[in-house]
């Protein structure tokens, strides 16, 4: 079976740090940053870059639509 490797890009200035993406991520890829953005929120980041499969669950549920998801087949 082909394996997929994913990556997310978070618009960190628009992220409000609600943590819903973190709670629903099936591979526990997403965590919250230690630093804060311009509004004082801890924003979503990839804490485990290797485990992301690019399922786009986080993108679909993000209330503020700040997550862009990429996916590529692994060689």
């Amino acid at each position: 079976m082909a394996k997929f490797k994913g990556a997310i890009v978070v618009d960190k200035e628009k992220c409000k740090g609600c943590g819903i993406c973190m709670s629903i991520c099936p591979t526990k890829t997403i965590g919250m940053s230690k630093e804060v953005n311009g509004k004082g929120y801890n924003f979503a980041i990839m804490v485990n870059e290797e485990s992301c499969t690019g399922c786009a669950s986080c993108g679909r549920i993000c209330p503020d639509g700040v997550i862009t998801v990429y996916r590529a087949k692994e060689d």
């Binding site: 994913g6 990556a7 990429y70 996916r71």
Partner: peptide, 16 residues
Amino acid sequence: MSQNICTPENLVYKKT
């Protein structure tokens, strides 16, 4: 590592 797959042809989800 993850940066090189962030290209338009690998895009699967983006805000409309």
